[in-house]
Write a protein that binds this DNA or RNA. Sequence first.
DNA 1: TATTTATATTAGCCTAGTTTGATATACTAA
DNA 2: TTAGTATATCAAACTAGGCTAATATAAATA
Lengths: 121, 121
Amino acid sequence: MYEQWAERWRVLGDATRLHILRLLSVRDACVCELVDLLPISQSAVSQHLRKLKNAGLVRDYRNKSWVFYALRSDIPPAVLSLLQELPVPDTEAAWLRGHQVGEACSPPVTRSGGDAKVGPE
Amino acid sequence: MYEQWAERWRVLGDATRLHILRLLSVRDACVCELVDLLPISQSAVSQHLRKLKNAGLVRDYRNKSWVFYALRSDIPPAVLSLLQELPVPDTEAAWLRGHQVGEACSPPVTRSGGDAKVGPE
DNA sequence: TATTTATATTAGCCTAGTTTGATATACTAA
DNA sequence: TTAGTATATCAAACTAGGCTAATATAAATA
């Protein structure tokens, strides 16, 4: 009877998924960046992202070699205000600021023009 | 890191607990009434109520032979508005309206004055 | 096309959570 | 105090969910 509602909230009932959402609230990130920041395997990250996507909380888009994930703009206000309350460790915030998107995953193939524009949608 | 937040939301990620919360939003109910309305054992109901209580979502008070549970008045607004969205089946609403509190559990011991006042706090 | 890199999927293990049945505790009333 | 009822707790079975390792797919580039 209430299973569909329960499932919506169960998505938020996992520490790793909250972590991912909090990171994405700083800026969009590709999967490999999240793998670098989180203490779990790439497989686990991918499975969490799928659940977040199925729940309508994030969207994904491809740019060059990488698949980026972003918070959806139509997230319920209640969820959004929840996310604002979560702390973002300084180290992680600095990491996100200090890396160009995609930079962390593999060095650019060409030596010149390495910082190509990467944008959403 | 985010485990404490995840746990807060995990409480809402169970269909039975949502059901209980929705029933309590109609009116306070004693444990045996909830047992009558829910398709699970008395033991399971009791354990769900404990979790809801530990999460600060409900409070309990005793009246005569029964322990009543009630929604706490300081429930986060986000949770409260969630509850409003949940449907209450007509049969259950009618059941709650059609029964005096405690009436469903056992017939009143005395034949006269069977409808003693029962109130919160 | 072949190769490399990034991401997704699958299967199996493991842990956490829910349920039930049995039992214990807490009241109430005689 | 004793009996009866309501509720809580405990242990074990069952289930669901997260994790890893291995593998598959997809896109980019040589």
